[in-house]
């Protein structure tokens, strides 16, 4: 208990000033008040580079453990499963040729589910409807491996999320989530990743959300494994915000949030597998 309180105190000190200038509000109701970063883009770059240098880049050059998972993903893609005697490769090409570029538009609006469909959800739909196979549990090694393989087919290609037409309300809902205050700390995503980006917390520099969605699935050292953007959001950030009941993987709020976040990365090349601390 004391340790927890102390942890809280330290966290408060680390984002010194943050709490005092923001009055808690319920951002679900009414217009979203967008934040702007506290520091200039140049200052952010400077701090980010000073802190990280090229450590992750250097490590990635030496290899990324997720490469092995990528191989698993390809093997699973080619493996027959389910009652219809098919593999993903039966329909999408032996090496997934027909899915080249497909990942650049995900998550996207899907009229069938009248909402946002993410890659893992699409993969599970294909398993159920096209293969007669059991859907995978989200964020477990098999589905992460296949997602990684499918995404790797779009490596280097720019993300191009469309938020037009029927997708628009879901983008707005995702943005609302991003600004919704949650948990014991009464924080929202935007405080850390927009307003205070470039400041230090949790032994990290808070990053801007521009680069949050271009590199998943990612091997994270803290996890000692490879996971999805949703694991990062739910099991790290939302948990750290001290929310009692964590949201489910692929629940509507989380899909909308991922949609909002991926749109922020529009134009950036997909680079998987990622590597982070």
């Amino acid at each position: 208990m004391i340790k927890r309180a102390l942890g809280g105190l330290i966290a408060l000190l680390l984002i010194a000033g943050a709490i005092s200038v923001i009055t808690p509000q319920n951002s679900i109701a009414g217009e979203i008040q967008e934040y702007t970063p506290n520091i200039s883009a140049e200052e952010y770059e400077k701090r980010y580079n000073e802190f990280y240098g090229d450590a992750t880049k250097k490590m990635a050059e030496e290899g990324n453990p997720a490469e092995m998972l990528l191989d698993d993903g390809k093997a699973l893609f080619q493996k027959v499963d389910g009652s219809k005697g098919k593999s993903c490769a039966s329909c999408h090409g032996q090496n997934g040729e027909k899915l080249k570029g497909a990942a650049t538009t995900y998550p996207k609006y899907n009229a069938g589910i009248k909402g946002i469909i993410t890659l893992p959800v699409q993969i599970n739909r294909c398993r159920e409807n096209q293969m007669g196979a059991k859907p995978w549990k989200y964020d477990t090694p098999d589905i992460v491996a296949v997602e990684l393989f499918v995404k790797s087919l779009s490596n280097g290609m720019p993300i191009k999320i469309s938020i037009d037409g029927p997708a628009k309300p879901f983008y707005e809902a995702g943005k609302k989530m991003y600004y919704t205050r949650l948990g014991q700390w009464n924080w929202n995503c935007a405080i850390c990743h927009i307003k205070y980006s470039g400041h230090k917390t949790r032994a990290n520099i808070l990053s801007t959300n521009r680069h949050h969605a271009d590199h998943w699935p990612t091997y994270r050292m803290a996890w000692q494994s490879t996971g999805t953007i949703q694991r990062r959001i739910i099991n790290d950030c939302i948990k750290n915000m001290r929310v009692d009941k964590l949201p489910e993987y692929e629940s509507e709020d989380i899909r909308n949030l991922e949609f909002y976040l991926t749109y922020q990365a529009n134009g950036l090349p997909i680079q998987v597998p990622g590597l982070r601390f």
Partner: peptide, 8 residues
């Protein structure tokens, strides 16, 4: 060393 050690 981490779980599932990887080396190059």
């Amino acid at each position: 060393i981490s779980a599932d050690p990887f080396m190059t």
